[in-house]
């Protein structure tokens, strides 16, 4: 054996433990924080992009940006007939229309016959339904799935995004957001 001198300064020796401690804290925080695992739109507070979607069904007109600037807040519902939660939220959408809320729909990657069947069985709450086969509007407003519901104010500015289906308990909150959008 060569010399008996201590090998390193005291601090360096504790570095690995310190790093592990930092890792541990980070992970604990990560595990126990109710993390938001959705990709939220970063486009809230910005005006709707320009679009002009053709009609998705025979009995409702298509959707353009200009038509959405009605001076009155409305909902933009991104949905599809092939999506189960979209059927789940249908009664809530119906309830919202009964309260006088106007809802526009964007049908994502959908076929007319599927859409007709879907609207026939779950009701049609939409004032207009635009056909978005290339997810252009979806990408344009930062939506990453179906269903998602956006609150659009009277000037066509996106005010709020609800990710996932609207559950009965969400309806008052949505109405509240619409009221906020009025100001």
């Amino acid at each position: 054996m060569s010399d008996q001198r201590p090998k390193r300064s005291g601090l360096a020796i504790w570095l690995p433990l310190a790093l592990f401690g930092a890792f541990f804290v980070l992970v604990i925080v990560g595990l126990y924080r109710p993390a938001d695992r959705e990709v939220a739109s970063a486009f809230i507070g910005k005006p709707l992009p320009q679009f002009n979607l053709p009609a998705a069904t025979a009995d409702r007109p298509g959707l353009t940006t200009a038509e959405m600037k009605t001076g009155k807040p409305r909902l933009l519902n991104v949905f599809a007939s092939w999506c189960v939660p979209c059927a789940v939220e249908a009664p809530q959408l119906a309830a919202l229309t009964q309260q006088g809320v106007e809802i526009d729909g964007v049908a994502i990657r959908d076929r007319k016959e599927d859409l007709d069947r879907f609207l026939a069985s779950y009701g049609n709450p939409f004032a207009r339904i635009g056909k978005d086969d290339l997810s252009e509007v979806q990408l344009g407003i930062g939506s990453s799935g179906v269903p998602e519901t956006f609150v659009i104010d009277g000037k066509g500015v996106i005010r709020y995004q609800h990710i996932g289906e609207i559950r009965p308990e969400d309806v008052p909150m949505i109405l509240e957001k619409l009221k906020e959008a009025q100001s």
Binding site: M1, S2, D3, Q4, R5, P6, K7, R8, G10, I13, W14, P16, L17, F20, G21, F24, V27, I28, L31
Partner: peptide, 30 residues
Amino acid sequence: GSFILALLAIYIGGALALFGIRASTVTEGE
């Protein structure tokens, strides 16, 4: 996840602490 995390804390934390305590007595070598 919690279970593995607990094991992680015991084993890794323990071993690194043991290292901290003992390493200063480990001589440098050649």
